[in-house]
Amino acid sequence: MAMKGLIASIYISIQVESNWTKKFLYLLYLFFAPLSSILIVCIIYGFLGQGFNSPSFYFALFGSLSYFILADTFFNTAYTVIDDREHYRVLKYIIVSKTYYIVYLLGRGIGKFALSFVGITLNLLWIFPVFNIDTHFSLILFVISIGVGFVGAFGLALLFSSYYLLAIREETSLLDVLFGGLYLISGAMFSPTVLPGILSKIASYFPISTAIEMTRFSIFGGHLTPYFQGTPFSQFMFIFIVSNIISLLVGLVMFEIALSSAIKKGYIDVTTAF
């Protein structure tokens, strides 16, 4: 039953994201979606920085691409609660169904992740030949980085979904703060070592930051900036895995607490005309 529910929610996720237009046009949309991230890296690092062959350019380029997948998964999965409760008005039906809501959210997250991954892959087809990038690609490490990164992003999504379950307004103000804050400490665009003290420390242990750096490591076989440079690989891998697992565990616990509280308080079918 859980597997059926998971597959159904993956299907729903893909349909919700794509059924507003024809499939071919949606593929084009997927292709163009990450382009703004790529463009800004090209302009700032390519024209103002050290050029298109520098480690800092590769750092920012692949950081932005990884960030696009993980952040997209995180934000969209967290927002699913509001979407289901306010826009589609199906949250209570999903909760009373035989599918656990966490499994449903996991399916929505996997669907979104898969679509973002397709978008990035389409762009990588032109990025590698155009910029003539040399890599030391490790498939196993790449799969681990993306998989564990998804786990961490999903955990964060559960944490913020738990907030949205208990906030009975279409409260998107938190997303504004998260978007800015996540972008700052993610290490996507620049090495977090340039951040002041405490922010740099947070970035060293934040799940998405470590996942992005592990993805870069899997593509280039080393660290491109002072971020984690000098840290033994085993220690880096340990921090990466533990931070993402902790994110998932905290998310699961908070979500369960919030969901049972929301059901008791009757929040699961409250809508706001706001």
Binding site: L48, S56, G180, L184, F190, V194
Partner: peptide, 20 residues
Amino acid sequence: ASVVGGFLTMATYVYLYRSI
């Protein structure tokens, strides 16, 4: 929230320019 979020996004690009 929008002030904090806007400031953090702006800070990202300030630190980005400082990093290069």
